[in-house]
Design a protein around this nucleic acid. Structure first.
Lengths: 146, 146
DNA sequence: CAATATCGTTCACGACTCGAATGATTGAGA
DNA sequence: TCTCAATCATTCGAGTCGTGAACGATATTG
């Protein structure tokens, strides 16, 4: 019959590889006392895709209550300013501070370093193709495509 | 300065995409009462890469105590037989049963379906390239390359 | 034979995330 | 204007997942 191996499946491989990569990314972030989700939140703010906590939660596919604790931590670090939306005072608006931008830049640099390790020895066109395919797959899955 | 976006980073994208994919894979596995790690264990047994629980734990990058509970569940389902190694009675040897093979086949089929969804609309050569690159990256990270 | 190491197991714990309950604020309709 | 329902943020309790520290059984070494 069909003797496809589980481990050669894209689903399984993306899953396991994704896990080790986030693990490695986490390790680099640990120095700043952050988790990947904190950085994801910062990236959303920089992109301007959402500013209210609820919108951020939706964008991150995460419970609103989680955004509260992420924002707490980021505010504590001075990376983010919390302001009530004057137009709707129920809303908390998150805004990147200068420190937040620096922090995000540092984390992005860490991710780029990791990229270099991951793609070391690969042909540039392979990397380019990988980027492209992952981009379209991310887009399809409702993730930020860029 | 350098305005690379975090979200276009391979590390970040592999991480988030990996999470989404395992989530979707988990959903399909839920019907059988399994988690991805259960299936990973089954795959190791089929590949014959390890049979003792400790070796399996090492291969999975996981605590030995976790393998205990995974094996408990799989034994409960009749997918795995637990036997003391006659040569070293401290060792528990796990062996796939016929049911276990069927179960693994079903899970592999589920993963393959998911693959089809993920790659739908992509050019065959893109998919092939993706497989190749992910394979070498997995291998580099100490994961089962095939 | 004694001392030490190894394997599997149990158990208590920490990390992570969610969902329900709560309070503040808004908007709709009588 | 005055309810009443809906919405947003927050807190809090609970569930899941995985780890690491004991512990008992077995093996190995001197």
């Amino acid at each position: 019959m069909n003797d496809v191996k589980l481990t050669s499946t894209l689903a399984f491989r993306l899953g396991t590889l994704g896990a080790v990569v986030t693990e490695r990314f986490s390790a680099r972030l640990a120095a700043d006392g952050l988790k990947p989700k904190h950085v994801g939140l910062l990236a959303i703010l920089e992109a301007g895709t959402a500013t209210s906590q609820l919108d951020i939660a939706k964008l991150m596919n995460v419970a609103p209550s989680l955004v509260v604790s992420l924002a707490d931590r980021l505010e504590e670090l001075g990376a983010v300013r919390r302001e009530r939306d004057p137009a709707d005072r129920r809303r908390q608006t998150l805004a990147l501070t200068a420190e937040g931008r620096e922090l995000l830049a540092a984390c992005t640099a860490a991710a780029a370093e990791l990229d270099a390790e991951l793609t070391d020895g690969l042909k540039p066109e392979e990397v380019k193709a990988l980027r492209g395919v992952l981009g379209t797959m991310a887009e399809r899955s409702g993730l930020p495509a860029d």
